[in-house]
Design a protein around this nucleic acid. Sequence first.
DNA 1: ATGAAAGCGCTAACAA
DNA 2: TTGTTAGCGCTTTCAT
Lengths: 333, 333
Amino acid sequence: MEKQEITIYDVAREAKVSMATVSRVVNGNKNVRDDTRQKVLAVIDRLNYQPNAVARGLASKRTTMIGLVVPELNNLYFSELSKGIDDIATMYKYNIIITSVDTSVNREEDVISALLSKQVDGVIYMTNELSTIARDAFTRTRTPVVLAGTVDAESKLPTVNIDYQASITEAVELLANNGRKKLALVVGKEDADINRSYRMKAFAEATTKLGLTDSADLIFPNNFGYEDGYDLYEKIKANNVDGMIVTRDVTAAGLMNAALDAGVDVPADLEIISANNTIISKIVRPSMTAIKQPLYDIGAVSMRMLTKLINNEELDEEHVTLPYSISKRNSTK
Amino acid sequence: MEKQEITIYDVAREAKVSMATVSRVVNGNKNVRDDTRQKVLAVIDRLNYQPNAVARGLASKRTTMIGLVVPELNNLYFSELSKGIDDIATMYKYNIIITSVDTSVNREEDVISALLSKQVDGVIYMTNELSTIARDAFTRTRTPVVLAGTVDAESKLPTVNIDYQASITEAVELLANNGRKKLALVVGKEDADINRSYRMKAFAEATTKLGLTDSADLIFPNNFGYEDGYDLYEKIKANNVDGMIVTRDVTAAGLMNAALDAGVDVPADLEIISANNTIISKIVRPSMTAIKQPLYDIGAVSMRMLTKLINNEELDEEHVTLPYSISKRNSTK
DNA sequence: ATGAAAGCGCTAACAA
DNA sequence: TTGTTAGCGCTTTCAT
């Protein structure tokens, strides 16, 4: 099963130089006479030589690979984040090993240690509030880690986020200003919803502060997909809710469609705000008001931070908070 | 920057055995006495030893990593495929290096050679009709390659697909049976739309065969996102189209919303079929009739095939064609 | 069943 | 500027 035919040794022989010189040429080292460089380059080209990144990784202790941990693959929220990471990673010539922790097949612990054993140069973790397992693993390793869209009060890891609490507070205020009296917060599963507890806390506080005391407890957890949202509407209706904030866009779409199917007028009788502004918010009718997170930027900034950490450069800020906004569309007045 | 503290050598010393024995234990080799195994395992546990996958890869020529090439990251179509791949890969303990070729930043050639230089054990390619560059690279390498959702008439690479031509033909017939007279096909960019030319061919043939000769040329290319679809509606209207097939779901949603905003009755005046049945087809109102591809299965089967190729096992079929269906919803009669 | 030793293909001192 | 020579941490014959 030899995959590697041509090695640095072959090139050296053919070009009548040492391996070291070939290595220098390949790595762009300046200390090579120009005609030597040309000669080596010609041989490399002729033999179609490709350096073996594994051998290189072993010798140099740098793999030019970074690990990316996401909760789900088929979710536009993480896709958008990933795209930001990918673009910057490409710019810096890093490859991305992506691992999801959404299947019961893989335990988070195994996933992380597999990543670390592969000697990735860094890890970007964007799987919700940091689990104990992950926190322990990241504390133990010397591999740099950045948390993207993931708050963790207990660890010192660098983070890139928006102000989740403020965004929920603002959404609550928006609904209250529109005269809504009975609000609800619909969130996802504990292990698959970014910063769920921060949002829940903000919701309870903001509603209480605004005197909507019977809203403070109206938090519906464990809603995942479109169907979950659709089915949940029964309960929303039973509670006479007239305004809600839904963390996941597909769930929000399910709730809205259920309401529409039940003959409810959105936004006249029920206002909805999604906490994730993916394309879905724009596509649905009525289009949905949503908290617009700079997902791409969160990814890009995280990756940029990681490159600095990898190169032992100083970080301007350990914890970056990016601005969010609320895109007002037609599911609110 | 030492990342690896504990090596196999440390374990060997502490357990008073040779490296070879530790290696055997780690790799589950049978030729180890049971008490030796226990002893080694205890030390491994105590020292928290993690084998260095890079060193292992260099020595064994297997990296337990596979490469995945996709055109875009933030597209539910590929997300769903990726999920199928990921689940099977996890099962077989492979990690996935994912690379997109959607940015102008990265040339396909570089992306592929970066992947191969990383000594991945195999590659799954799902970027549309195989480019010349990719075909050449894959012909040259010994690394196994599987094409997922990608037809290529010229190469001998294993593939997993649905019958794209038949699916379009069936969609055309559905619209024709509903009495539609002027059909259109809306496709994406050449390099970002799976098997575009097969679909175009099938569309032209099917419409001609059904006597809808002025539909045969009504193919609108280069439509990418939601806005593209929305803006394209002008032309659709100008051509008096009364039924259309749109390869990308977001584009279909854009077209439909534009039609609705223009006061058109969907499906009474205009019927729409999406060629990608992602969650978006279900969410939009009216919900959209869509060609339902077994995306998850295409991914899973591809990955399973790849594991066989990696292990030099016989393939049952070189070219797998999975069944599709048309999910009838409310954008057709 | 266990150990010794030779690589895997490359980088990085250190010499020259 | 170039070459020599140790490794990097592991797997894998080949002995024993």
